[in-house]
Design a protein around this nucleic acid. Sequence first.
DNA 1: TCAAAAAGAACGAACGTTCGTTCATAATAT
DNA 2: ATATTATGAACGAACGTTCGTTCTTTTTGA
Lengths: 197, 197
Amino acid sequence: MTKIEGQPARRSEKLQERRLKIVEAAATLFIEKGFHQASMRDIAGKAGISLGNLYNHFKGKGDIIAAIAELETADLDLLLQLLEKAEGTGPDVLLAFARQYYNLHKTPSYAALSAEITAEVFRNPQIGEGFLATRQQLVSAVQRHLPPGLANTAITAGLFLDLVERAGQNAVGQPQKTQSAILGSLLDFLKRAVTLD
Amino acid sequence: MTKIEGQPARRSEKLQERRLKIVEAAATLFIEKGFHQASMRDIAGKAGISLGNLYNHFKGKGDIIAAIAELETADLDLLLQLLEKAEGTGPDVLLAFARQYYNLHKTPSYAALSAEITAEVFRNPQIGEGFLATRQQLVSAVQRHLPPGLANTAITAGLFLDLVERAGQNAVGQPQKTQSAILGSLLDFLKRAVTLD
DNA sequence: TCAAAAAGAACGAACGTTCGTTCATAATAT
DNA sequence: ATATTATGAACGAACGTTCGTTCTTTTTGA
């Protein structure tokens, strides 16, 4: 009881760094090989720690997968905040958001991980819970910027997001020029769809 | 040379049945557990044959996965033919097609398999080749029904399909009522998007 | 026509490997 | 001194694949 706090949390600080390094290593490998092809040995090796020690940080492989899925929501939370704070009416806000949302989804690592998670959620719905919760918030935020005369704005907001997501995913690996063309057509498409005559 | 054809191809007939049974068993298991969680023993068991015999019909697990991916294109080919033969102009043809395309994609088994294939294609592009070829034909068919004044009709046709696919996928597991509401909003959304003022 | 021979479909045990996880033990920090 | 963190060997289970073998069907030669 002499030295209660020499350096407050120096140790758990290191620990958290280790944990982050593990998660990053796991994410890289999951993108490369998929959840079930990346082994615990792979992850430990890439994180630079021993196999046994890996189990001091995570209860098992399932926990790591869950941590990755949670990590994904961080990017979404950022965009969500931007959208919620946005002022102004009309389609402009939505289209500006769509541009960013598209850019996120066409990122190869994001797209690959998304695909992996989507497939996993079909069999293990619990994995996708946080993911769906964040998406629901996005739907609400988009909904608020849709024209008032529109029916079923909640569903329409969902469709808005659906399209941007898929368009981004399909743009992966395309040359820069094509990606820009897709973005342009996407924004036109969306503008017509969210504008009432 | 006496008995040239007692029963022509009695054997290869049986053989084809077996092969179909294997593919069906594999598809069921892939939907349930995913490509890499379904084992060759699982597949053999479900197909009602021995493990060793499974390798008389398929060179390996990769071959079975490829066969399943090919199988997926069959559904698309059917819809493609319907769309290509469709007469008339304006959005009506497109919306009728969208309805069918949506129904296909909201089928749980189709959606699960699609998700699995999508994730797999990121790491093994060869798997998705036939899939992408068929999709390209769909794009062309949709493109022909878009209004003439539209720019970048190829990309827009792709977006059209993107939206329907994702909307269908997200409708999986929803109650019938919700699925109908999504379809309604989807068709409205599409109609605005493919109609020039 | 019909026995003999060739072909190949079916079987399940066994191979070597890799998996996720646990364990006894050593190093380290407080 | 003692609790925490790290290590890699060890475990049993499961993996994809190959193997020698048997059984059924088809083809051949007289």
